[in-house]
Design a protein around this nucleic acid. Structure first.
Lengths: 241, 241, 241, 241
DNA sequence: GATGAATGAGTGTTCATTCAT
DNA sequence: AATGAATGAACACTCATTCAT
């Protein structure tokens, strides 16, 4: 038993903490209610007092992660994109972000990098949760999956991000190309970074801060996969290479 | 029961095929030996005639994937790297690949892209297997894990890739930075691409060929995250951005 | 199902009773958990609620027998040996028990015979248990075995019997000869008597009381294999015969 | 695998040897056909070529032991009892052996002791087999059991020993008392001696020859539990003690 | 809130045995 | 005489879940 799960907090919190610990280590199917009860130092039957069943414990964990992630993205869009567009200082086209002046672009790139950093710190804080998410995303018949994060690239007003931008820029749209790249070279590395973080450090005997630094540096660098030209950031013309 | 597993091939092959199908769909722990036997149309006890236990079925599947992947990488190194280095036409430094002439570099970039394509087609061919690999890599105490693919970035002669290059270039070495990037922005997207392929297509209603094209295009583009200057490909100076 | 195991007592007691019944009849390996559950009229899983595993059921049975047997021996030593030695009325030598007067010797022989009777009644009460003990003693790698009863003939202070006598008689010791005889012509007949009791009666159509009488009579008689001379009981000079 | 079972002798002999080894170590129920096949270095199915089933292997082992033991007893009776009775030099009564002269009695006692020695050496030679016999005797529904050795104390002409003596002495008979004593203080110690021999030596760190000597010495001494008086050996009056 | 006892269904695994070759 | 493949039944053991208290 880990000391941090035994007696601190309410019984329900201890159950959740124990479940995160165990699900992330052994998987949902590989973890038993008995183990959760033992790790949380509660009676097995008490878990059924707080949760409908084992699946319900998992759902409550993953829902929290999802909500947190979405909130961060919405904040970024509201603060650093929607405003610029509304003021006419940023024009989002199908193949590029066109800024009306270099300063705005520089500020934007700066904000993007800070956003990356916040994202990374958030997923690292919940690295055990994201490990669970990644694994459970790949089981058939799950409702909570990494792919549902793509709902925020949907072209309809149920998607609050789309709605925010659409409200200020009628022409805005996502391309399939963008979605693929954002998913497999954005979301996927980030989630896998969190999921593999501890194992990677152990396996490669690398320092935590060093690993975080290397990962973030390349995330920034990825922007250069897009072409910066004048005040514009082109992100769909890399086939020119 | 799926029609494609029932009676084709030997009993052992049917067991393996059924296991891949089911492990990838429901996870290792979520799949029962009963289900495998039913899907493979064999007696349950026969599975234990061919395999030591359930884990052994998994191991044999993952080992095959690992061996195939490694063979592809070794082929590429032998064919397009070792030769050039031996002839003095390529010099591998800690921060760049220096070619003695532009033609060699062009050929190399072309070969790299073709290699990417072969990798993608290989993992897609075994997408169900890589789905299993990804999930099981994240269970504690597994021997087969995605991280073990990093052994081919180890700086010792047990690693055949290192040995091949070292044999022709004494100064060659890997940096931690490189390893992080290769893993989280190379291997991880590729494996996740295979693992999420079917789900992604279903979720986004995208065409298979289109998805493959978009993914590959960005893989090529990633090379531009490295700086090409003259005959050199710099890959460690993106912190200049 | 036997009527005497079905619903009397707690579930745990019924499990133990059923296990004794079945182990003694079919052996440990020949008895299944299913059978125990059916005989005890409990759910199979409940056995695992009270016992770690099947072996644990056996251990608990044998441990009880061992403890009971040892308790009887200790009582006898404390009551009829230690006191006499302490008072200087009995002197234990390597080859004989020397009493200071005939009365004490007569009382001692009487007490010994009563002790035999109690032993016999105890093992008959637990005849099914001792049947199990005998069989399981002859399996490799068991911890509970008839031989462990010999620990009470060990020459060290971990052995409470040795300690009791040693405390009052510094010169006391066991010989290998004694240990062999005590085991093969004392413990072994007694345990086998319990183990074969029912079968013997059935096979020879003999009366229970008659069998008990014949057995006990010869146990008493065995004392005459030792030489009684004056106030001394010599037990190591039968090689004179 | 033990070296002595692997390739010496015919396949059938190797199977039998392996079965003795394994049954004696782990019991009949605790030994699998697979283990026997492996130890005997034969294909599992071959066992079913030579034996009807697993039980048949056991039966063939125990039958051999039984036949050998009986043959020894018959030899002794024929050689040292029947002759004397026929010649009128020995008169068997219900409570004593009456010899017509001291020399015959001395010779008889000597022969008895030699007979004991041969018995001991026979059971030690087959100690693993007798270990099996003892254990399997205590399973319900077995045909081969230690008790069936008592058939040679039956008072009917199916019993060859009874017949031999009866043929020369019409008054001869067995008492229940005798049968009990012969079984529990004769056969039982002898069989248990063989069965526990190796374990005893290991447990008590005793020398093989020493153990054999101590055991035999007491067997001789047991005769003194019977009263020798003049030319008579009384064996039923030990209640006088 | 909390718990000890209980359970039906199912787990991975092993068994003795068979049979075509 | 010998064997690799196959099987039905059973094995010890565990599961998520329930419920009376």
């Amino acid at each position: 038993m880990k000391p941090n799960c035994n007696n601190k907090g309410t019984a329900k919190d201890r159950i959740t903490a124990a479940a995160i610990e165990l699900f992330s280590e052994k998987g949902f199917d590989g973890t038993t209610i008995n183990e959760i009860a033992a790790e949380a130092n509660v009676n097995k039957a008490l878990i059924y007092y707080y949760f409908k069943n084992k699946e319900d414990v998992l759902d409550s964990i993953l829902q929290t992660l999802f909500d947190g992630f979405v909130a961060m993205s919405l904040d970024f869009i509201r603060e650093h994109v929607a405003g610029l567009v509304k003021d006419g200082r940023l024009n989002i086209k199908s193949d590029c972000f066109c800024f009306s002046n270099k300063d705005d672009m520089a500020v934007f790139i700066e904000a993007t990098n800070a956003y990356f950093e916040r994202i990374i710190d958030f997923v690292l804080l919940h690295k055990r949760g994201y490990r669970i998410l990644l694994v459970e995303s790949l089981k058939g018949k799950r409702n909570h999956t990494l792919l549902s994060y793509l709902d925020y690239f949907e072209r309809n007003n149920d998607n609050p991000i789309f709605k925010i931008i659409k409200d200020v820029d009628e022409d805005f749209n996502y391309t399939n190309d963008m979605v693929v790249v954002k998913f497999f070279f954005g979301l996927v590395p980030v989630i896998n970074f969190a999921a593999f973080f501890d194992d990677f450090i152990t396996y490669k005997q690398m320092d935590e801060q060093e690993l975080r630094k290397f990962f973030l540096r390349f995330m920034y660098a990825l922007t250069s996969a897009y072409n910066i030209s004048g005040n514009n950031i082109y992100f769909a013309d890399y086939e020119l290479l």
